[in-house]
């Protein structure tokens, strides 16, 4: 340090508190600028994606010779939007409880060594390419699911149809080869499992020991302690984990393309048919001429998916913030 406390003989005394570490301050400012740029950059990319989608969707809603054709587009789009949401929600319903269970086992039940191995294996699931999942779903899972579909069809559709006059349309029709959206959602459930479970595991592990011990000291069993201390603490994290999984399930393309043999929309989830937005875009985008109405329709479909994702995220935010006062942040 060059600062000295000796009195200066010159009139202009220099303030010894003025930092001499110019380089350090510059690095600090540089890093702040870099972080700021990274934050803004993400917003810019997002804005460009939104702009691209909105701009190019126009042709699906308005053509010069026909005027507004919103009705035609909605007619075309809604089965895909519905299919996407149904597949993703089914996948989450199947995968979230299992993922939370796995995460709890790793964080609070398994002996330390076993929990590391299991965690590693679960994380490995995330590394398998979706093509492989698709192939597995198509050749292994779909045929294996057919007996279940036959049973569902028999007891939830055919039998009530004959005896009560009304069968549940979700289970109508012949299962065929089992290549339907239910099989696709099972494949997706396996694919999103590692995402949800690793987020949950991280957050479960972070539960303050203090709160866990408070519950145990009141005479809580391990499960009661988890309900009292772990779940309330982890609630927001679990919801974000599920949302990450949902994002993956909504956008997954390859596995769905391979597993579902789409034959147009129908109410049944166990017979061939139905499709999702990513599947429709992936199968058709390469074969449409740019700037044709079909091309615009596919991009508008992409916009619809974008909006669905936004809405889902907003709902998740709302759920997380609802009990802010009781979140433990204060």
């Amino acid at each position: 340090m060059t600062t000295t406390s000796e009195p200066k003989t010159t009139d202009k005394r220099t303030n010894t508190l003025v930092s001499s570490d110019k380089a350090g301050a510059a690095v600090d400012r540089g890093f702040a600028a870099l972080a700021k740029f990274a934050g803004i950059f993400i917003l810019i990319i997002l804005a460009f994606v939104a702009l691209f989608l909105s701009w190019n969707s126009g042709g699906a809603l308005y053509q010069e010779d026909e005027g507004l054709i919103i009705g035609r587009f909605l007619n075309y789009a809604w089965p895909f939007a519905l299919g996407t949401v149904v597949v993703a929600v089914l996948a989450l319903v199947m995968s979230a409880p299992v993922a939370i269970g796995v995460a709890l086992y790793i964080s609070h039940y398994a002996p330390p060594r076993a929990s590391k191995t299991i965690g590693y294996i679960i994380d490995l699931l995330a590394a398998i390419p979706s093509v492989v999942y698709g192939a597995w779903g198509m050749f292994v899972l779909a045929p294996a699911m057919v007996p279940l579909y036959r049973w569902l069809n028999q007891w939830l559709y055919t039998w009530p149809q004959e005896n009560l006059g009304f069968g549940i349309p979700l289970f109508a029709g012949s299962p065929g080869l089992g290549q339907n959206i239910f099989t696709a959602s099972v494949v997706l459930a396996v694919m999103v499992l590692p995402i949800i479970s690793s987020v949950c595991r991280e957050i479960f592990i972070q539960t303050p020991k203090l709160h866990e011990e408070a519950a145990l000291a009141l005479g809580a069993t391990r499960w009661e302690m988890i309900k009292m201390a772990v779940f309330p603490f982890a609630r927001a994290g679990v919801i974000s984990g599920i949302m990450l999984g949902l994002g993956r399930a909504l956008g997954e393309t390859m596995a769905v393309v391979m597993v579902v043999s789409g034959l147009g929309f129908q109410w049944s989830i166990i017979s061939a048919g139905n499709s999702t937005i990513p599947r429709e875009i992936a199968l058709n985008f390469g074969e449409t001429a740019p700037n044709s109405e079909r091309w615009h329709q596919l991009i508008a479909l992409g916009l619809v998916l974008f909006i669905i994702t936004l809405i889902v995220n907003m709902i998740a935010r709302w759920i997380v913030s609802r009990h802010k006062e009781f979140s433990g942040a204060n």
């Binding site: 303050p208 203090l210 709160h211 011990e213 408070a214 519950a215 145990l216 000291a217 009141l218 005479g219 809580a220 069993t221 009292m228 201390a229 309330p232 603490f233 609630r235 009990h323 009781f326 979140s327 433990g328 204060n330």
Partner: peptide, 22 residues
Amino acid sequence: PVTVRAMVGMVFQRPNPFPTMS
């Protein structure tokens, strides 16, 4: 141990009310 802890209560070094509860 759950039975024991129900009969022998404990107060900790740092206050630890459950944060999500009233």
